[in-house]
Amino acid sequence: MEAQFSGKTTFEGAEFKGAAFFKNCTFPESPTDNLNIFRATRFRELASFRDVEISSFAAFNEARFSKSLILHDPGEKRAAELWKNALNAAKAEVKGEDKAREAYFGALQGGCRVLKQEMEKIADQSREHRYFRYELIARRHRTGISWAEKVASQIYGALSDYGHSIGRPLLWLGGLFLLMILGVFLIAPIEAETLGFNLTASPHPVLADSFALSWQNIFKPGAVWDARFPDTVPALAAAFHGPGLPLWLKSFSTLQSALSLLLIFLSGVAIRRKFRIS
C-alpha cells in the first residue's frame, strides 16, 4: 500500500483478510489525528509497518493481530525522542480539555498495551518493556487516575525503570545503606556530646556500630525492636544514653528495612522478567 493520510484517519472496525503492507504510507503528524486509526481493526494475516513512523501509538488502540506484526524500530534513542515529542505535542493539543485528554491518553495506553503484547509474542524483550513503560506513562496522564497512583507510578519508574532494571534498585539500596550509616554516625556523637571522630579509636566504635545497624536493618528486618539488640551495638546504646535505642532510631531503622525489602523485590522482579523465570 502506498498512500498519504492527513487529518483524521480511521480504519475502525475494518478487516484485512490478506497481508497488509504500509511501507510507503505516511500517517498524520498530529498525535491526536492518529487517535484510534486502527481501533478494533482485525489483521488476519501479516501486518507490516516497516520503515513507517507513526507519531502516536494511540493509532493501535484495540487493534487485533491474528498473525505477525512487523513494526518499525528506530532504536531506543530515536524511539525515546519520538515518544517525548509526541507526548508533548499531544499534551499541548488537549490542554484544558478533560474529555479530549482522557480520550487520547486512554487510547494511547490501549495502543501501547497492544504493541507490548505483540512484542511479547515474538519475545522482543527490549520493545516489550519499552511499550510497557509507555503504557504506564500514558496512564499517568489520564484525568481519572488518582494522584496516589500517579506518584506510585513515578516512584516505580525512578526506582527500577518500571521493573526493567536489575541494577538500579540495588544502587538505591546501597545509597540507603550508606545514608543510614552516615546519619547515625553524625547524630550519635552529638547525642553523646562527644566529637564524631576520635583518632585514638580505629575504627571509630560508633562508625562500626552504625555499619552494623544499617546492615542488620537490611538482612534482619525488625531486629532493632528486640530487647537484646542494643547489646550488638553497645557504642550506639551508650551514645544515646541507653540501655535501649531511641524510638526515632528504631522507626527510621524500620523504614530502612521496609524500603530495602521493596528494592530487593524490584530487583528480583527485573531478574525474573529478564530471564523469563516463571
Score class of each variant (00 low, 15 high):
11 F>Y: 14
36 N>S: 13
121 K>N: 10
95 K>E: 12
159 L>S: 02
29 E>Q: 15
119 M>I: 03
247 L>Q: 09
114 V>Y: 04
87 L>Y: 06
262 L>G: 07
1 M>Q: 05
44 R>F: 03
40 A>K: 13
52 V>S: 03
262 L>H: 13
34 N>R: 10
81 E>D: 11
148 A>C: 06
44 R>C: 05
114 V>R: 07
90 A>K: 09
139 R>A: 10
214 S>M: 00
102 E>I: 09
268 G>K: 09
150 K>Q: 13
137 I>G: 00
77 K>L: 12
137 I>N: 01
247 L>E: 11
160 S>V: 08
137 I>E: 10
141 H>Y: 14
210 S>W: 14
215 W>Q: 09
81 E>P: 00
263 L>S: 02
169 P>V: 07
48 S>F: 03
120 E>H: 11
110 G>Y: 05
251 S>G: 01
238 A>Y: 11
63 A>V: 12
123 A>W: 06
188 A>R: 02
203 P>M: 08
63 A>K: 09
252 F>L: 15
71 L>N: 01
159 L>W: 01
99 K>E: 13
277 I>T: 03
34 N>I: 06
4 Q>W: 04
20 A>W: 06
85 N>S: 14
10 T>S: 15
240 F>Q: 01
132 F>L: 12
39 R>G: 02
236 L>C: 02
154 Q>G: 15
86 A>G: 10
189 P>T: 03
13 G>S: 10
139 R>V: 02
250 K>R: 13
81 E>R: 09
120 E>N: 09
194 T>S: 14
267 S>C: 08
168 R>I: 10
217 N>T: 08
181 I>Q: 00
254 T>C: 05
39 R>Y: 04
127 R>G: 01
138 A>E: 08
165 S>T: 05
203 P>N: 08
183 G>A: 11
41 T>Y: 04
65 F>S: 07
139 R>E: 14
251 S>Q: 11
267 S>Y: 03
